[in-house]
Design a protein around this nucleic acid. Structure first.
Lengths: 215, 215
DNA sequence: ACCTGAACACCGTTCAAGT
DNA sequence: ACCTGAACACCGTTCAAGT
């Protein structure tokens, strides 16, 4: 299982530092993601990540002040991907009906969360993201603004049922968040939905919700 | 900090075992709940629980085979309380309209979850409840059946918007679950809702959802 | 029958010392 | 500037030995 990378380096010049070097930070991040994917969030230990990256137990602390900070960094990467997936889903919606665009956002969220359960778990596990990076904040606020604008537009053209627009927005968000969490918490089976159908069923539920708030 | 309980027992007969004795299991459960309430779920260690109960590090393992099993036991107690709170909320609803009864279930869920965030967190943290106790299963299924029956009744009397009843049920459940999780995950502030108003706002969102699915 | 206390193999984190 | 490796104070879990 153990390899000695120095066995095949005859040149005595600067050749020895082969891989633990330039971008240890990224290597640590990659190893963490892989470890989460293999064994789950709880299995992540700084020492194991260091081991997989081939560095000493203390090395990661040069790049992340704590285990939590390491996971926060992973969560930021994941959240960025989620937002991008949602934005892409919105762009790919060719309908102009604002409610259908709103639905495309929700569908994008659900698809990404179900396709990347471990990443979604990291994102939504509290106390892991403690300080909010402004860039992410901005992006998130942007998406929220888009959702609000879409429903406001729907309301203006008489396509939305009565009620506070911001509450409709939050209901939609809570609905998809709840569905995604129920999935990673393994709750669908006890609600009569086979795990394999969970995504399709969730999308159907979202669609029915959209239909419900349509005038 | 340390106490010696044997100092004040002159009788040589069965009097010495003063407190770590009869129901250590319950004492451990209580100490765990208290620890969670004080320091959060992550701070729970078997050793600390043992320390607080005044027993040796290995003692808890006579009653719970693992740390996870200990937390599972706590989760079961919490889930039982949640179900009871929801059932009480339903009983206290004096309206006969099935949709209002359905709403009372959701409100009961929200109120309990917001009033007992740490307990709710334990319940909804995956991999903590691994084996399902039949009694809880039954109760949960019972509640699900009640929700389904209420919406079926509403549909029969023409009070429900078109759509699959079971999907309306699941939407309602996912909505309140999502709202409760957003709360304990601290997400309301970034959605423009002050933490102090989170419960009232959540109830308002639920009410609006109920109104949306009303015919 | 139930608990103690030592033991084992881990962990997060720090910090001098090395290159 | 970045990493090593020893050290410290924890942890979950096991198990002989005590009562």
């Amino acid at each position: 299982m153990a390899r000695s990378p120095s066995a095949t380096s005859p040149s005595p010049e600067p050749k020895k530092p082969a891989y633990h070097h330039g971008d240890l930070r990224r290597a640590l991040l990659d190893a963490t993601v892989q470890l989460i994917e293999e064994q789950g969030l709880e299995a992540v230990s700084v020492r194991e990540v260091a081991r997989r990256t081939g560095v000493s137990p203390g090395a990661p602390f040069r790049h992340f002040p704590s285990r939590t900070a390491l996971l926060t960094a992973v969560a930021e990467v994941a959240q960025e991907r989620l937002v991008q997936a949602v934005e892409a889903s919105l762009r790919n919606e060719d309908q102009v009906d604002p409610l259908l665009k709103f639905r495309a956002i929700g569908r994008g969220f659900l698809r990404w969360a179900f396709a990347n359960p471990t990443h979604f778990q990291v994102i939504s596990s509290r106390a892991v993201i403690e300080y909010e990076r402004p860039s992410l904040r901005e992006r998130n606020d942007g998406l929220r603004g888009t959702m609000h604008a879409l429903l406001t537009q729907a309301a203006a053209t008489g396509g939305l049922r009565p009620g506070e627009v911001s509450r409709h927005v939050l209901a939609g968000r809570a609905l998809v968040y709840g569905l995604a969490r129920m999935h990673i918490d393994g709750q669908f089976p006890s609600w009569g939905v086979d795990g394999a159908n969970a995504l399709d069923e969730s999308i159907a539920i979202l669609d029915q919700f959209i239909a419900s708030i349509s005038a």
